[in-house]
Nucleic acid binder design. Structure first.
Lengths: 225, 225
DNA sequence: TATTGAATTTATAAAATCTTTACACAGAGC
DNA sequence: GCTCTGTGTAAAGATTTTATAAATTCAATA
């Protein structure tokens, strides 16, 4: 596997140096930018796997850089913020930041969050259309096509399949699915799930008795593939 | 790379001498302690990469030292025990020992187990996918691949293999496994374990009659590698 | 208000999994 | 050789989990 490339946008040289050493010794390839403008150019010319962005610059240019990046860059952006500056954090998350870290941070935590963010890149959470064999799920338009034919799904059915699509290949527990689709009060209503998985299968599977897309993991939950 | 530091806690001078010679000639730095108390102090003042602890002292102080060390020391502890004292071994493994060796032992085996134990120190188990030769165990997705093919495991089978995977190279006692998978009330239901280890082997081993991944440590438990 | 489509329940058959029993086999000790 | 202990395997229940149809409730709307 190739080294994942990380872009650091921060005006403080000592932070950049620290990050450079930490990340390179953990097998990442590091690219640096000193100003927001430079960062955007770097990101555009050579899109990295992940961007670490210092948000709390005095002139608030960090926020503008984030917005500008988010117009086209859909991989993870982790923001760095001085401690206790919650308004910066909230604004940044609203503007599409993936995660945040308060300075000073522990490297173990930074690395863990980076791994998590990069993992999310790989499962197409940011793309608007998920491809799964004969199925195409358009998250933005809320449409599902099977062999290029538009399927007619109800709202709950669509919510369910889009949750599956965003977590392709991994087992989702009943509780998790119920929490995500119906809300925290419904985590034990496993039967709802059965009914809706049943009707989804009728629509998306070639043979609903032998489902290939929504596989049941008995005693645990379901897996979409 | 620096020499890894090993702490030996054993009251028998001739054993300590033997270990000292063996280990130093194999590139380890050796620190010795004659009593349990001294051992704990040594470990605390200068945490070693690995501890070799004689468990079978007449006054059972070895067990107490182990428990005391485990309150804060989380690297590997290999215990030494006189042959056939299985109850000592089982107790020690349940108390968090990493591995065990019966005296008299062959130096090649000692060195091999030390290497394995030290290797496990270096990769802390915060990874979500464990690689074991032809097997890949994805803890987050709850999937297991053998030669890149997805295996179909039941929920309990997966729980079992993931427990094994998180403790690669380490002997797990029957009691420990049963406690982790089935709960505290099941620590004596060894037969459950036999059945499930059997069905796991059928799925993951090339030749279930000669298992290479799940090895049985007779009278003690199992080891995954 | 009557209609319609969707969501929620209920009921039940079927499938999958877990538990338990039975028995065979191997090695250690006598 | 025999017995005892620990182990592995198969298979028969027992139990849990799942799938499906169908009934009911609910909400929107004509």
């Amino acid at each position: 596997m190739n080294k994942a490339e990380i872009l650091i946008i921060d005006d403080e040289p000592q932070i950049r140096k620290l990050l450079e050493i930490t990340l390179e010794s953990n097998g990442y390839k590091v690219v640096q930018a000193e100003t927001g403008k430079e960062g955007v150019i770097q990101a555009a010319s050579h899109p990295p796997e992940l961007i670490l962005l210092d948000i709390g610059l005095p002139d608030r240019s960090g926020h503008e850089v984030l917005k500008e990046l988010r117009q086209w860059y859909n991989k993870s952006i982790i923001i760095l913020s001085v401690q206790n500056n919650e308004s910066d954090i909230v604004t940044a998350l609203d503007n599409g930041a993936t995660d945040y870290l308060s300075k000073p941070f522990r490297t173990a935590e930074l690395l863990a969050r980076m791994r998590s963010a990069i993992r999310r890149n790989q499962t197409p959470n940011n793309t608007t259309v998920v491809d799964a064999g004969d199925l195409q799920i358009n998250l933005a338009a809320r449409t599902v096509k099977k062999n290029n034919e538009l399927l007619k799904l109800t709202s709950t059915e669509f919510n369910l399949i889009s949750l599956f699509a965003c977590n392709e290949g991994r087992v989702l527990t009943h509780r998790f699915i119920l929490k995500e689709i119906w809300g925290v009060g419904y985590q034990t209503e496993t039967q709802y799930l059965r009914v809706f998985v049943g009707s989804l299968r009728k629509k998306i599977e070639d043979n609903p008795n032998n489902p290939l897309h929504i596989v049941t993991e008995s005693g645990v939950g379901y897996r979409f593939q």
